[in-house]
Amino acid sequence: MLLLLQYTIIFASVLMLVALGGCFSEHSGVINLGLEGIMLIGALGGAITLNALGAKAPAGVIVLAVTLVSILFGMLYSALLGVACINFKADQTLVGTAMNMLSVASATVIVKAMNAAKNPNNVSSTIEYFNPKKAFLIRIGGFEFNWFMVIAVVILIGAYVVLYKTKFGLRLMACGEHPQAADSVGINVNKMRWSGVLISGFLGGLGGIVYIVAGASEWKFETGVAGFGFLALAVMIFGQWKPHKIALAALLFGFFRALSNVYSGIDFMAALHLNSSIYNMLPYIISLVVLAFTSKNSRAPKAEGIPYDKGSR
């Protein structure tokens, strides 16, 4: 049971971070389908740093460096979306999908090349970081905790404040609702959308490193992040694009995702003898059902997905 709680918290904080990223991007008017790819690239940056620093570096340095590098990688990668969709008015769905494919291909190539450079016989796409990742752990009794959870809570509060209590946040949301109106009162729509996309890169990259460090000790980059970015999008929609509701939605989805990892350890669930595939499907089925009931009165930003064109009415 403790394990279930632990995994729920891990997955919930990942989903929440990434969903908040999506939330900022969509409030500015850009649909970010590339979150999955941003997560993977952020994770790649973090994993390389972890591996390079090794276990000898002081814990504080590891935590800080890994977090910063992941964020930087995520933001750089999200710039691909910004350039194409904001400056060149490309189709956001298409570009997002391309980014996801590119992330898996390039992460695999980079890791394989790095592994092969160290040891010519190693052609795997796995990075191992068992020892250095201990820097992130905080133990309270039997409960394993890690620094990222603290960061996640801080960011949740930060996101809420920025979005609703600052001039920047309100302007950002205006650009996703009615960019022409925002422009008419002197808000630079492209700049706001760029901020939205970069913030989603920031949070997506962070979510990526949390996902691979909290859940595992090594990562095979060929597998991507197993649909977590997309699940985060569902969390965002279920959370109605509002940070506090996103947090609750993330807990719910995180719980179901955790079930598939630990069900065999829980007596009555193991007794059901259900195929593990069913538990793997569960989060997706639930999000479909939930979406079916909530999408009709969706509170999606009105202008999301539409490139801003000054000339149009």
């Binding site: 649909g227 997309f230 999008l233 195929n275 999000s287 479909l288 999408s295």
Partner: peptide, 30 residues
Amino acid sequence: LLKAYKSVNEVISGIMLNWIALYLVNMVLN
């Protein structure tokens, strides 16, 4: 059906169904 009558974005539902299909097929073909 989800798109037409429940206004669920086809991209999101499509992505969810991708994963459902994968695990379902793994289970059946087992």
